[in-house]
Amino acid sequence: MDTLNLAQWVFDSLTGTGLLWLAWMALASPQLIRAIVIFVAFGLLMALTWVRLDAVDIALAEVAIGAGLTGALLLAALAKLTAAQTEISKSDHRPRDGRAVRALRQLPAVLMFLVAAGLVYSVLSLPPVSSGLSVEVDANLGTSGVENPVTAVLLNFRGYDTLLEIFVLLLALLGVWSLGGLPPQRVAPAGPVLHTLAVVLTPVLILLAAYFLWAGVKGPGGAFQAGATLGAAGVLLQLAGWRPGPGFARVHWRLILVAGPALFILVALFTIVAGRHLLEYAPEHAGTLILLLESGATLSIGLTLAGLFFGERPDDGYDNDN
C-alpha cells in the first residue's frame, strides 16, 4: 500500500465515522438549535463525500441545497416555532409507562438491527465490479445533444423523470401556499454590512446560476444546480429584507413558476405529435431542446425554492382568507 492509498483510506474512514457521528448528534441532541447547526455541518461533510466519490454534479447540488437551503429553511422554521411560543421540549416529560409498553419501546431497536443486518448482507453480496448502465449511456451519448452524461440522463434518456419532478416541486409550493399564512415575525432591519453582502452576493449567485446552466452541457452543472443557486439568491434577498411586491407576486412570479413545467409539457406534446416517444428528441435538435428545457426549469426551480423559503402565499392583492 503506497502513501496515497493509505492517506485515502484514512480520509475515507474519518469521513465515514464523521458522517455517522454527526448524524447521531443531530438526531440525539437535546437542543433543537444545536441539532440544526450540526445538521448543517453534516450537509457540508456529505458534500465533501460526493467530491471524494467523483460525483461532482451531486456535490454541486448538495452544497447549494443540503448545506445551504435546507439549513436556512430549518433555521427559519425554528425561529417561527419559537415565535409561536410553543413548548418545544415536551418530549422529555412523558408519563410513566407500564412494563408492557416499555418492552414495546425496545421494538424499534430490534427491528432496526434486523433491517441493518439485511441491508449490510445485501451490500456485501453485490459483485465488486459492475458497469451498471454506464455502457448504454456511453453508447448513446453521441446522439443525446450534450456531453455531460448526467445531464443526458436527466434531460434526454430519462427526461420523463425530470418532467414529473418539476411537478413535485410545484406541488410542494402549492401545498405550502394552501396551508395559509403564519404570524408575522419581527426582524430588525438589515444593517449596512448585510446590505452590502446581499448587494454583492446576489449578482454573483445569479451569474453562477447562468454559468452552471451553461456548464452542464459539457461538464458538471445543469438545471438543478443552477436552479438551486438561483433559489439561494432568492433566500439571501429575503434575509436582507426584500419582500415580493403584489404585482410581482401576482403575475411575474406565477408565470416563471409555471414556465418550466409548461415548456416540458409543450416539448413532450411536440415529440408525440412528431411521431416519436414522449420526450424523445431528434438528434439534430436535442442540444437546443435540452438547453431550452433547462433554462425554463432553472427559473422555475429557483423561484420555487425561494417561494418555499418565503413559507406562505405572497401578498398578491387577491383575497387570502379562503
Binding site: D57, I58, A61, E62, I65, G66, L69, T70, L73, L74, V150, L154, D161, T162, E165, V168, L169, A172, L173, V176, G222, F224, Q225, G227, A228, I301, T304, L305, L308, F309, G311
Partner: peptide
C-alpha cells in the same frame, strides 16, 4: 440529484 431537490421541497 433529483432526489436531493425533491428532499428539500418535501422538507420545506
Amino acid at each position: 440529484i433529483t432526489g436531493i431537490v425533491v428532499a428539500v421541497s418535501v422538507t420545506a
